[in-house]
């Protein structure tokens, strides 16, 4: 056990700029403020005196911040001896927090980034990633480390749950302007997380192919028109924007789908019958769906289909342009 002593401190003794053990990120929880306001500080913060004589916060940064907001002082705190190493202090902060709650993705990133200054990467991945409910993998470690390089508003959204960390991972390698273009886009319209991921990939690929920045792709007239079509529901706009961007990325497939729809329309298939091409028109297996209610109805449809199958138009829908 680490020896520590209780002291009564003034808040101006706290070194608020020393974030070496700070792994909390996000707004102060209202319930913590209410708790301290109502019954005072129950659990003592843990601090350590640094070389300047000021106190470094080890555990309890949010409690101390609430006390500062409320003007509560002097405070009874526990003070660690200076002999305790920075690494041990950081470990105390981490273990204290994970024992009480799940950390948000930005906090997980803070843990991994700060511990990386003290710990070998392989060891860090093995010890800390499972503690953070993360798969111990170098790739995932790298993704979390890059999260912190992003701007505060994006980190706030990730910490607050309005932007999924998976989207943070795909936005982190982008230029700042492109990142914000996506961020604003996703805050504006209700795309699912998987669609957001798909759109980032699609837009980046369109940009690379057409020599445009992702921001320029998102700002294109076609996308903007759909974005501003306020007569349509947000969900409809989401679907149409997605369709538009996928069509831009895959013009050959889109053209083939359109041709298929056109040609199938011309065939005038009997009611309840549908021709289904293979996925992506790849492979030889086409299928036919036929719904019916009575045996004689099925017999009629099959006769009609047999005639249709011999038509050159029917064969044409299965061929390339």
């Amino acid at each position: 056990m680490t020896e520590k002593e209780s002291y009564s401190i003034q808040l101006d003794e706290v070194d608020w700029n020393d974030a070496s053990c700070l792994i909390t990120y996000g707004p102060l929880p209202d319930k913590l403020t209410l708790s301290i306001q109502t019954v005072g500080l129950i659990q003592k913060p843990l601090l350590q005196r640094n070389r300047d004589g000021l106190l470094r916060i080890v555990c309890g940064s949010r409690r101390l911040a609430v006390c500062q907001q409320l003007g509560l002082e002097p405070l009874s705190c526990e003070i660690l001896p200076t002999s305790i190493s920075p690494e041990t202090c950081l470990r105390m902060a981490i273990y204290d927090n994970i024992a009480q709650r799940d950390l948000n993705p930005v906090e997980k990133s803070l843990v991994l980034t700060k511990m990386a200054q003290h710990e070998d990467q392989a060891q860090l991945i093995q010890e800390f990633m499972p503690l953070l409910n993360l798969e111990p993998s170098t790739v995932i470690f790298g993704r979390y480390k890059k999260l912190l390089l992003m701007e505060e508003s994006i980190l706030d959204a990730i910490a607050g749950g309005t932007l999924h960390e998976r989207i943070g991972f795909v936005l982190s390698p982008l230029e700042q302007g492109d990142r914000f273009a996506f961020f604003n886009f996703f805050q504006e319209l209700p795309f699912s997380v998987s669609v957001q991921e798909e759109l980032v990939e699609t837009v980046v690929e369109i940009g690379r192919r057409d020599n445009l920045t992702p921001r320029e792709v998102l700002d294109s007239a076609e996308v903007n028109d759909l974005r501003r079509a306020h007569k349509r529901s947000a969900r409809q706009r989401v679907q149409e924007i997605r369709k538009q961007l996928l069509a831009t990325r895959a013009p050959r497939l889109t053209a083939r789908e359109e041709r298929f729809d056109r040609e199938v329309g011309k065939l005038k298939l009997p009611a309840g019958v549908r021709v289904v091409p293979p996925p992506y028109f790849e492979g030889p297996r086409w299928s036919l769906e036929c719904t019916f209610e009575r045996g004689d109805e099925l017999a009629t449809r099959l006769r009609q289909l047999a005639e249709l199958a011999d038509q050159p138009e029917f064969k044409q829908i299965m061929e390339s342009e």
Binding site: E205, R208, R209, R249, A250, P251, L253, Y280, E282, G283
Partner: peptide, 11 residues
């Protein structure tokens, strides 16, 4: 630029 063309998942 080899990834610029559109790709589909094959069988």
């Amino acid at each position: 630029s080899i990834l610029d063309e559109e790709f589909i998942p094959g069988l």
